[in-house]
Simulated assay, not measured.
Amino acid sequence: NSVLITVLFIFLPVQTFNTTNVTKLCPGAQCTFAFYGGESLYHKYIFIFQLANAFVFLWLVNFAIALGQCTLAGAFASYYWASRKPADIPLWPLFSSFGRAIRYHTGSLAFGALILAIVQLIRVILEYLDHKLKGTQNSFTRFLLCCLKCCFWCLEKFLKFINRNAYIMIAIYGKNFCTSAKEAFFLLMRNVVRVAVLDKVTDFLLFLGKILVAGGVGVLAFFFFTQKIPVIAQEAPALNYYWVPLLTVIIGSYLVAHGFFSVYAMCVDTLFLCFCEDLERNDGSTAKPYFMSASLHRILGKKELSPKKAAG
């Protein structure tokens, strides 16, 4: 296109605006110059506008995640703290929890999402600077950028962990974000050994479940695409390269499994925080009975001293 325009400008006669027929066809037409760059307010601050769009996008994404986590935590907590199961459990626990989160906890969820979005925006800016300065950096600059990116990556992981547990405490007690984050952090620190063991075991089991789901679907897809299942062999398309749809199916099944197992992970975290809170608030006596089941107390609990041993 640029070559064609150049050729036309060279060989065609130059005409002025007043000698052409444009004024008769379009009365009031004017010849203006369309500039590019920093000639207007929009072009001067376009980078700032792009950062603002990125920040709002990160904020909305984190808010949606926070709303989902708080909704799930409220539904699971309503099951745990029910004295008589299932009589005291709400009829629609998920919808009830979603209504409470929207009505009472929107500000706390937005504040937690805001903190996380600021850190993520700083990481985006650092990646942008690293990309722009690539090739012109000395060893000290590369080391400094690497340290900053590592520090903010760790900070983002820590904030995600704090926010997740803060949303659980918000769903349980309905307090603000800062108070819930502080109470959740100190509650976990008082049970740090249980936290470490439970997180590792849960992460391993959930990862194993995702691999099994993706692997099972991949094996079925392999037999389907290679027409090795006699019942549906006629339905399978004839493919020269079946690895492309096979990999697509495996990756898609893993992502779907990840979404489903993240609900189980939220359930484990919520029940664990409720369990720790139950141990500190109650002692298993008739006056203060545990809300947990006996099997859960055997798995995660510690042997409590009987009243006689405690008195002795």
Rank of each mutant, 00 (worst) to 15 (best):
E304A: 09
A238Y: 07
E304H: 07
A221T: 13
H297C: 04
I115S: 01
P307A: 11
S83L: 11
K303F: 02
L198N: 09
A287N: 09
Y80N: 00
P27L: 08
F177P: 03
Y242N: 07
V7W: 14
G68C: 04
T19D: 13
S306D: 14
K228S: 15
T270Q: 03
C146W: 06
A82P: 00
A52Q: 01
K303H: 11
F261K: 02
T23R: 05
T32V: 14
I46Q: 07
Y264R: 03
Y290T: 03
N240D: 13
F291P: 00
A233V: 14
I46R: 08
V256R: 07
G312L: 13
F207W: 11
F204P: 01
L187D: 05
W92M: 13
I118M: 09
L109R: 03
P27H: 09
S293R: 07
F95H: 10
T23W: 04
M292G: 06
C150H: 01
F272P: 05
I125L: 14
A238S: 15
L51D: 06
N191G: 09
S40P: 02
Y173V: 07
F98Q: 04
T23P: 00
D269W: 04
P245G: 03
F275M: 07
L198Q: 11
N62P: 05
H43W: 14
N163Q: 12
D88M: 05
T20V: 04
D199T: 12
C146N: 10
A287Q: 13
A52W: 12
Q30S: 03
C276L: 14
I229A: 08
A311P: 01
K44S: 10
A54K: 01
G74W: 05
Y80F: 14
Q120C: 03
F152R: 01
A265C: 10
